[in-house]
Amino acid sequence: MRRISLTVNGVQHEGMVEPRQLLVYFLREQLGLTGTNVGCDTSTCGACTILVNGNAAKSCTLLAVQADGAEITTIEGLASNGEMHPLQKAFHENHGLQCGYCTPGMIMASLDLIANNDDLNDEDVRIGLEGNLCRCTGYQNIVKSVQQAAGEMRSPAST
């Protein structure tokens, strides 16, 4: 067992983990943060996407020990004071989800995409989210949601 210490959604956590413990199971089972979903468990679907030091990552393909010392953001870290994050609000308003299974990963991947690109057209959003699969929506409304949120996040005055 190894001791790891990491910050998740601004809160410092310590844990004892087996080296083979995957980060997603550490978050879900040890910290009880079940918002991050496991879809494929084979690095393909992106449902398990979180931010590690600000970078979108598939948490089913990282060991918890690799995240020792890291700053992690999960879907639970987005809303503040009971207010949904612009991305959450946009997915809600634009039917950016149906069953919702892919949604936490879609939102975390979108957050990374928006933060790293000043100007995104629809094609950029589609390519930027290539690592996230949705079985329900057909993506149209996901792209719409990301565009609405990107606009809102860039002009915070309008909120």
Binding site: L62, G128, G131
Partner: peptide, 9 residues
């Protein structure tokens, strides 16, 4: 290569 998530690691 792969997607953004893969390229980050």
């Amino acid at each position: 290569i792969g997607d953004r998530q893969v390229r980050h690691f």
